[in-house]
Design a protein around this nucleic acid. Sequence first.
DNA 1: TGCAGGTCTTAACCCAGGTTAATGCCAGTC
DNA 2: GACTGGCATTAACCTGGGTTAAGACCTGCA
Lengths: 252, 252
Amino acid sequence: MIRVSRLIRKLEIFAPLPEEEKRALIDASSTIRRYGAHEDLIQEGALTDGVKIILDGLACRYKVLPDGRRQIVAYFVPGDMCDLRVFLLKRMDHSIGTLCPVEAALLPQESVLELTERYPRLTRALWWSTLVEEAITREWIVNVGHRTAFERMAHLFCEIFTRLQSVGLTQDNRCDLPLTQSELADTLALSAVHVNRTLMDMRRARLVTFQGKQLIIHDRQALQSVAGFDPNYLHLDGETNRLPAAFKRNTA
Amino acid sequence: MIRVSRLIRKLEIFAPLPEEEKRALIDASSTIRRYGAHEDLIQEGALTDGVKIILDGLACRYKVLPDGRRQIVAYFVPGDMCDLRVFLLKRMDHSIGTLCPVEAALLPQESVLELTERYPRLTRALWWSTLVEEAITREWIVNVGHRTAFERMAHLFCEIFTRLQSVGLTQDNRCDLPLTQSELADTLALSAVHVNRTLMDMRRARLVTFQGKQLIIHDRQALQSVAGFDPNYLHLDGETNRLPAAFKRNTA
DNA sequence: TGCAGGTCTTAACCCAGGTTAATGCCAGTC
DNA sequence: GACTGGCATTAACCTGGGTTAAGACCTGCA
């Protein structure tokens, strides 16, 4: 199996890519690296380097506060890229770390520059994927700011499940989710204790079971409804995307 | 005065732009539009159109929840662009509205495509500015998630003041800030009542006075310190940015 | 096989911030 | 110069979620 096939599958939600451009992306990302659990791919303050494409496992962006508390601000699932264009900033203003063992493809800076200079369709698809990422970050502000613990967690589960589903990493109503409760807490801006309480409530409500690093969604409809989850912001539906007219010509 | 000079000034924090590219940007953005206070530039669900550059006034991105509550997820100050590449998405997943009368330059989609195709330096500078915007969004998650009302508000004031300062819109220790307390509440994910309480506390602590749409910072050092504000994430310091080597050649 | 460190679970107690509601203070405007 | 509607301010009361702490449950390792 082609290592970056999940990325390509994702990019093609936006628009089909010509074989040549797919091949160029595959060729450029042939260097694979493996990371252990809870290892940093890159640390806050470090000089930025090339782009990483997550092939397997789960990673996250996070920020650490002076008092040592941590806020996870994004998850990376297989097929996601960490920071298409970070090399434009001198130093990272946050860290990226793994949550479990991770396999990633490296795309050196020069390759990114070259690809984006030569392949307009690929470039637009990559841009699009960064727009989606931004949309997710915005939704997280709403989540942390305006939803109760229960809704918030329900919303996160809906999002993760939907994203994993779109890259073929769910089975029926379940998926692997290698997170501890306190990592969930760092994500949702809740205490670990309250995450546990809420998880128990969800289990009792027969909505969701999250145990042994497995997420089982018993009633997706109900879950989405309590969460107020509208998948629109994930832009996973081809219908919600469009190509600028000037660009469509080249796409057939 | 050139209408988009603030944008150009901002972009040149990243790297100086050749005259030709500046001129191209100025020419492309010669259509000016005026909006009233609390008017939408674009609404959630609408088809996306061209890019807008804020010349004067204050605008914001916001999302509305089913229960009618609103979360402001970003501010646009003069010199900011609303969504360089939104036209890659079919429909908006949030709205952009004004907070006071606003003057904006319109950059039609075709101009964006043309500029980004012809002018690599300008393009990179524009990319950079979207990276900065993303960094701000991430910091907002931390703000809403992990800081107390007092710290949170202090942090927002530090950020806004710094951003306005960088485009020359502050006088000494004060700046115009055309927000009501309940708009502040929508930003900080607090109730309007608690915003008022906190504002009073800040006034009493002789840190900040926010009255009559004016923000006066009495003790910036102290404010930054309670907020845990580290301006690094704004990337306004030229030193924190860098050009990829492959690109530097063309920049002299 | 027993121990150690991480994780999960539960209970008891507390407080930051939400909610409701009343009052005051404008700036238009007819 | 009264009337209206939007803001700001304050008080009284309540609750969701934080904190602390203790016990149970794992899993890997010696």
